[in-house]
Design a protein around this nucleic acid. Structure first.
Length: 860
DNA sequence: CGATCCCGCCACATT
DNA sequence: AATGTGGCGGGATCG
């Protein structure tokens, strides 16, 4: 009702902002247009009394939806968009005018009408929840702001949150790409996994203390010299404050939003009180926490909560604790994500988003440059950039990591009594990794690379567990398969294991190229197997893949999952905390996510494949990535097998990559074991290159060439888009990487490919290098990679450090965490292997192995 | 009076 | 320097 008033009023208000210029708005995509026919009017200036009022009016006039909505709903509640609207408007208008006009005073729009929640609903109403894959809808901030009648600032609030869930991705300045909820499930799954890592323990405890927070020890990071992880984590966080160096921005709403969501996903009760969330999010500081800081945090949480409420993911409730009632929110979105779910990266799932925008990188917070670097690296492809001129991305990338996390205590969360609902026992399962595929084009983002680094690490750990899980999803996969005997198999199951091989595989497969990303959607996909095309991303179906969140089974599956995992799982309660400190790992969660896609994709992929294969739906997707995949493998043995496999993997196997086209001379060797990470990275990042790979059993590198198409080809270079996509994955593109990453390996354990390594900056050679051979580094960086170098080392792993990516690595960190989890007592076993530094990763591996009981020895 | 959270200043980033 | 982003918190409203 008020609304109307508003409208009328509007005219009067003086405007301040107002801006509205429609001019620019261009539009967006066709779809959009269709949807919203109107755009807006004109008029800007007016004389309105209230500032916004006029805008609103305009807006309303313009978009039917909005209006409806407004009226209808009050605030939050979900909206569906309906479109019904139109008609009414007119009438309204009229009405409005008549009546109120003067009163504006009274009526003022009431604060509620201007609430972010309502605004968000309006925003969401403008776009389809499940847009066709085919087109991408672009969103112009200016346009939307004017249409909705709000200042741009408010739109940023909404978009930032949506971006954290991958419902949109930033394409360029002032431009966002609407993805809808297709990938929401995947995103949530990823967040859940990340959340478990970070907060899992806490949750377990939850009840125990409420607030406890432990501090996680100090993060350790010690080991890691360089990188990334450390930094991220650790530092991370400061939250704000200081600003200083790290970008303050990094953290931001986006990250906060992801963390907030993570808390819900990890919580058994699915209810999180604001104060607890705020404490957790504040991370470190808690103790100290200034009251003001806390207050600010809460404020932000309200902002996020309003958006999430509009998405119908949460709802407000109150919990009564000892002290009394406290405001809280309950998760009402999907709870479980069966293993997979989507995967598909086909479309562009989140990964896209992530990478593209910012997420990817990350790395340290501080250096922003990195971004650039990354870009460079990544970019090579034109593709990437092509799209937007201004890409946004670069900059932000990093942020995420940053502070990842510190995790904290959440504990409390659960316990309280909630008013509304009770608690559910449910829960989550564990971890699976996510598969996320990346890809996609739409987003364009160049930066994918970053991500993967992390991945590896993580993956391993988790993965297995679920059988389900699998997240695999990914596309990647299989191709190669076989490389070594069994390995592949392994892959499938285990995440980790797989990597190596998988990665390779992927690469190989990829090589082929992918079709151009863009291609039509449908067409390409065709088969999986065949599919070289991987790239395409999307093939087809728009929605299918993931299946929307909704439908999916959310819960059902859930339960199952948990159990299985156990192995790896995280649970490690206390230890972890400190142990790993997790520095990095934890943090990254968000990033991870992002990262995941990339990485995961590869590694995981295998698994995914399996599942998928199983599943019907995915077929498409599968296709994509799979291209080659071998379904066979999937086998399912999953766990068991995997273990075994794993072992195998760990064994000294290495992969060799030959130089391929892209790289020129790049040769890689990966250790099978760790490689994963490495590999993955590569894959992810680089879109372009394809490299032939070979795996070498232990020693002999040379010999086998496996797979891969030697040539690469990738004419197109899908780089940009494709990169992730399955196809992409396949290829290695190294471009970016190459430089950055040094792939090389260190003789021993390397640790980390993932984790540790991450050098902060690309540019620098990573110092981290812990192991890397210096030489390599240099070259690599350059891009050029000299392969030779690498080769030299016997063992080695790869690590890529990417320049930009490097930062990314941090994400990897996560893995570390895993380690922690894993960390078993014994892990230390190999001397060599585990170095401290690497420890993390390595360790994790080891532990894993252990779990697996692997005998593996060290390479060589 | 506490819970919400709009509003918009202003710092930082990108053009 | 202009413009895009978005942290942040005062203080107005709501309940």
């Amino acid at each position: 009702e008020n609304i109307f008033d508003r409208s009328r009023m509007a005219p009067k208000t003086p405007i301040k902002n107002e801006p509205v210029d429609l001019s620019k708005q261009k539009g967006c995509t066709p779809e959009r247009n269709a949807i919203t026919p109107v755009k807006l009017v004109d008029r800007p200036q007016p004389d309105p009394w209230t500032p916004t009022a006029n805008l609103k009016m305009l807006i309303s006039a313009a978009s039917p939806d909005m209006r409806d909505r407004e009226k209808k709903k009050e605030l939050f509640r979900p909206i569906e968009n309906s479109e019904q609207s139109d008609t009414p408007d007119l009438s309204q208008y009229d009405m409005a005018e008549d009546s109120t006009v003067d009163e504006f005073e009274k009526q003022r729009p009431s604060r509620k009408q201007k609430s972010l929640g309502l605004l968000c609903q309006k925003f969401l109403a403008r776009y389809p929840s499940y847009p066709l894959s085919t087109e991408k809808t672009t969103i112009s901030l200016d346009e939307v702001a004017s249409i909705l009648g709000v200042e741009r600032r408010r739109i940023y609030d909404i978009v930032n949150v949506l971006e954290s869930l991958h419902l949109v991705s930033r394409v360029a300045k002032n431009q966002y790409c609407w993805h809808g909820r297709h990938n929401l499930t995947q995103t949530l799954r990823t967040l859940q996994e990340a959340g478990e890592l970070q907060y899992g323990e806490l949750m377990l405890l939850q009840h125990k203390e409420q607030d406890l927070e432990y501090k996680f020890g100090e993060r350790k990071k010690d080991t890691i010299p360089d990188s990334q992880d450390g930094p991220l984590l650790d530092l991370s966080e400061p939250d704000c404050t200081s600003a200083s160096a790290n970008s303050r921005k990094d953290k931001s709403l986006r990250i906060m939003s992801q963390k907030f969501v993570m808390l819900f996903l990890v919580s058994k009760t699915k209810i999180v009180t604001l104060d607890i969330a705020a404490k957790i999010l504040i991370e470190e500081t808690q103790d100290t926490v200034d009251h003001s800081k806390f207050k600010t945090k809460v404020r932000r949480l309200y902002d996020i909560a309003n958006v999430l409420t509009s998405l119908s993911l949460i709802k407000k409730v109150h919990v009564t604790e000892e002290r009394g009632r406290k405001p809280a929110f309950k998760w009402i979105g999907p709870v479980e994500f069966p293993g997979k779910t989507d995967e598909p990266r086909g479309h562009s799932p989140m990964s896209d988003l992530l990478p593209g925008t910012q997420r990817g990188a990350s790395a340290t917070g501080k250096q922003r440059f990195t971004r650039h670097a990354s870009f460079n690296g990544a970019q090579p492809c034109e593709g990437a950039k092509r799209k937007v001129s201004s890409e946004p991305s670069s900059p932000r990338q990093e942020r995420q990591d940053e502070y990842c996390s510190k995790m904290i205590n959440l504990t409390a969360v659960c316990r309280q009594e909630i008013e509304e609902d009770t608690r559910n026992p449910s829960i989550k399962s564990p971890l699976s990794l996510l598969p996320v595929p990346g890809d996609s084009d739409f987003c364009v983002n160049p930066l994918p690379q970053a991500a993967f680094p992390v991945v590896q690490a993580d993956v391993p750990s988790l993965s297995l567990p679920n059988g389900v899980s699998s997240q695999a999803l990914h596309p990647c996969v299989p191709a190669a398969s076989k490389t070594e005997n069994g390995k592949p198999a392994l892959l499938s199951n285990q995440p980790f294991l797989c990597f190596p091989s998988s990665s390779l595989f992927m690469l190989c497969g990829g090589l082929q190229e992918n079709t151009p990303p863009g291609m039509g959607a449908a067409g390409k996909g065709s088969t999986d197997a065949a599919g070289p095309s991987c790239g395409s991303r999307r093939s087809a179906s728009p929605s299918t893949p993931t299946g929307h969140d909704e439908p999916p089974a959310k819960k059902p599956s859930v339960e199952q999952s948990d159990v299985p995992l156990s192995l790896v799982v995280p649970k490690k309660p206390f230890e972890t905390p400190k142990a790993e400190s997790t520095p990095g790992s934890g943090c990254t969660s968000a990033e991870n996510l992002e990262a995941f896609p990339l990485d995961l994709a590869s590694p995981v992929a295998p698994e995914a494949a399996d599942k998928e294969s199983t599943k019907p739906l995915d077929s498409q997707e599968q296709e994509k990535w799979s291209q080659n995949k071998d379904p066979d493998e999937p086998s399912l043995g999953k766990e068991h097998l995997s273990k075994e496999n794993a072992n195998q993997l760990f064994l000294p196997q290495y992969l060799y990559v030959q130089p391929a086209a892209g790289l020129s001379s790049f040769n890689f060797l990966l250790s099978a074991n760790q490689a994963p990470g490495a590999v993955s990275l590569a894959a992810s990042q680089l879109p372009s290159l394809s490299v032939p790979c070979v795996v070498v059993p232990s020693a002999a590198l040379a010999s086998f060439p496996l797979v891969c198409s030697p040539t690469v080809t990738s004419p197109l270079s899908p780089a940009p888009e494709g990169s992730f996509s399955a196809a992409s994955s396949v290829n290695f593109s190294v471009p970016g990487l190459a430089p950055a990453a040094p792939v090389l390996i260190g003789p021993t354990a390397v640790v980390a490919p993932g984790v540790p390594a991450a050098p902060p900056e690309p540019q620098q050679p990573p110092a981290p290098a812990l192991h890397l051979s210096p030489a390599l580094a240099g070259p690599c960086g350059a891009l050029k990679l000299d392969s030779p170098v690498c080769l030299g080392h016997p063992v080695t792993l790869l690590k890529l450090q990417q320049p930009s990516s490097a930062p990314l690595t941090p994400k990897s960190i996560r893995p570390a965490r895993h380690e922690a989890f894993f960390k078993t007592p014994g892990s230390l076993g190999d001397p060599v292997t585990w170095k401290k530094n690497e420890g993390n990763q390595t360790r994790s591996v080891s532990s894993v192995q252990r779990r697996l009981e692997i005998s593996s020895t060290s390479p060589d």
